[in-house]
């Protein structure tokens, strides 16, 4: 089985949550501004919780000094950096 990358896991979780919450989401490219993604803050809260369960890591609480991501690319990098 091919191991999913962090990015693929994030995309997969976003699609799951969007489906559950019946949200239309924009194409997930790196320049997409998160507030335009179609996900509301509750969706993001669910996403962060689910990713913590899948990846064992929550970059938002791992450090006191978090740069809150603006674009989808920022969001992925936050997790990729934390995974190292």
């Amino acid at each position: 089985m091919v191991k999913m990358t962090t990015r693929e896991k994030i995309v997969s979780q976003i699609e799951t949550i969007a489906k559950q919450q019946e949200k239309q989401i924009a194409a997930l490219d790196d320049n997409l501004v998160l507030t335009d993604s179609g996900l509301d803050s509750l969706c993001f809260a669910l996403l962060v919780a689910n990713l913590e369960d899948k990846l064992g890591y929550d970059p938002f609480t791992a450090s006191d000094d978090v740069n809150f991501p603006v674009t989808f690319g920022d969001f992925v990098r936050l997790y990729e950096d934390g995974a190292h």
Partner: peptide, 12 residues
């Protein structure tokens, strides 16, 4: 409650 950095808490 489960602590959430986004919403304060979420329900589990």
């Amino acid at each position: 409650a489960r602590k959430s950095p986004i919403m304060g808490s979420i329900v589990v």
